[in-house]
Design a protein around this nucleic acid. Structure first.
Length: 477
RNA sequence: GGCGGCAUAGCCAAGUGGUAAGGCAACGGUCUGCAAAAUCGUUAUUCUUCGGUUCAAAUCCGAAUGCCGCCUCCA
């Protein structure tokens, strides 16, 4: 088995080889907790959630760190605006983050450190950088000197000279180079502050990740992830800080996920189109959201819109319908069997730079084949077929555990879908049940016209019914 | 101005040298009292355009066009 991962550093897919055999040290930049999480956060978190699940399924011992940035300009600004303390504000949004991500079935990371819990580690690294001549104090601030780190720009593919040409950085004449960035910021009145050798202050944005990564994972880690926008300056600066401080390679594989657009527009404050996870979940099942997020390759931009979400819902329904059929056919409480062809091919897709889109394609291909087999098996039955169905069911379960989908009991899923659908209308489920009961009597009496009339009425309310041998089911269209 | 990415059917989306996965939508058949679900079939001789390399290109190289991202906080 060979896993390939695209490395932003080399701009190529590379063979994934860990520093220590079978052990993966992975750090992903988490949210700055000053507001509720949006669908873009969801993509990043879900993508790396799947990466960790997959690596673990492939036998790696993964230590996964995802941080919270809980001290920052934006948090201070929001705190001042709302009258909350920075600490309370950060705590509030950390809890909201967990509510959203738990709903999206995201597994917890091994460590979920907060910047403010690592101030000592941060100060220690800043001091090392000063001692080594990579940083300089200035009026209570401390800046990293980009000129003193020869590798500066290697991650994002920039050269200092080129950047200065179009310089859109605010010129702070005190700094030695306009691209020097703050490791430590002197405290201003009313801001959170900690004692340091340079006076009271707080950490800059980039240093916390270097510090927490070092504290929890050591000098060199295997994977560092985050959204594409973090490549520069955030990750570039992390490389500079960590490698300048410790003289070792900081990260072997840099993995960056693409953005989520909303109706073909970038999410932005000015457009006011930030789509919060909690709002999305009012309309769509969490697994629909995951399926949508994973239906494109993680580095491609994706577009969130009602049409694509409805299609994802239909697609997920299809899988659950098949699972329900399979489970009815198999023995009671089937147990996972040996892996089959579907799982093998899924892994091949995932080995190739986490190609979830291809993997999901394979799932749907096998759903069709299995439905066909089930149709056929109504006529002919064999134990070979039974084994085939069990293996396929088992593979689907395993795939679902990687992608974080297909995890519900099919009946529960159907009932969740009904509830979500009902929220959009004011149809009373008791009324629906009554209509269906009326229709059933009409059908028994062979009053087809009356039965069809009722069905049309239900359809007008977006209620789709399905006559099964053992009764009539309904769902929201 | 600098750096980078993308362009595959009506829509979404895989495919990085060997002759176009999958989903949605649409239409037709099977099943059904009729539907729904499921299934079968049809829907790209062709991958933005133009050159080049090759026995062979959607895939590699060059150019053009279009869209997008980063360079400022951003997942």
């Amino acid at each position: 088995m060979t896993i390939y991962l695209y490395n932003t550093l080399s701009r190529k897919k590379e063979i994934f080889e860990t520093v220590e055999p079978n052990k993966v040290k992975m750090y992903v930049c988490g949210p700055t907790v000053y507001d509720a999480s949006h669908i873009g956060h969801a993509r990043s978190v879900v993508v790396f959630d799947v990466l960790v699940r997959y690596l673990r399924a492939r036998g790696f011992d993964v230590v996964y760190v995802r941080n919270f940035t809980d001290v920052d300009d934006k948090i201070i600004a929001k705190a001042n605006q709302t009258g909350m303390s920075c600490m309370d504000l950060a705590e509030k949004f950390i809890q909201e983050f967990y509510v959203d991500m738990d709903a999206l079935k995201v597994e917890r990371a091994t460590y979920e450190p907060r910047a403010t819990h690592h101030i000592d580690d941060i100060i220690r690294i800043v001091q090392i950088l000063i001692d080594k001549g990579h940083a300089y104090p200035l009026d209570g601030d401390v800046y990293f000197a980009v000129d003193r780190f020869s590798g500066y720009g290697k991650l994002s593919g920039r050269k200092l000279d080129d950047m200065e040409a179009g310089a859109r950085v605010d010129v702070d004449i005190r700094k030695r180079n306009p691209f020097d960035f703050a490791l430590w910021k002197a405290a201003k009145p009313g801001e959170p502050e900690w004692d340091s050798p340079w006076g009271k202050g707080r950490p800059g944005w980039h240093i916390e990740c270097s510090a927490m990564s070092f504290a929890l994972l050591g000098e060199t880690i295997d994977i560092h992830g985050g959204g594409m926008d973090l490549t520069f300056p955030h990750h570039e600066n992390e490389v500079a800080q960590s490698e300048a401080a410790f003289g070792k390679t900081f990260v072997k594989y840099w993995v960056h996920n693409g953005f989520v657009n909303i109706n073909h527009e970038k999410m932005s404050k000015s457009l006011g189109n930030f789509l919060l996870i909690k709002d999305v979940l009012k309309s769509y099942h969490p697994e629909v959201v995951r399926l949508f997020l994973l239906s494109s390759h993680y580095r491609s931009p994706i577009d969130f819109n009602d049409k694509i979400m409805d299609e994802s819902s239909t697609a997920l329904d299809k899988v659950y319908t098949l699972l329900a059929r399979l489970e009815k056919r198999l023995e009671k409480n089937p147990v996972l069997s040996q892996s089959g062809d579907l799982w093998e091919r899924f892994c091949e897709a995932m080995d190739d730079d986490l190609n979830t889109a291809k993997g999901i394609g394979l799932v749907f291909e096998s759903v069709r084949i299995l439905n066909h087999l089930l149709d056929e098996s109504d006529k002919t039955f064999s134990s070979t077929l039974q084994q085939t169905l069990l293996t396929a069911w088992s593979d689907l379960q395993k795939i679902g555990r990687i992608l974080g989908v297909f995890g519900e009991v099919p009946d529960q899923y159907a009932s969740d879908r009904r509830s979500l659908g009902l929220q959009k209308t004011d149809v009373d489920p008791a009324w629906i049940e009554q209509m269906i009961a009326d229709r059933t009597s009409a059908r028994k009496a062979r009053e087809w016209q009356k039965a069809d009339e009722i069905r049309k009425q239900l359809e007008a309310m977006n209620v789709i019914i399905e006559d099964r041998p053992d009764g009539t089911l309904w769902r929201m269209g």
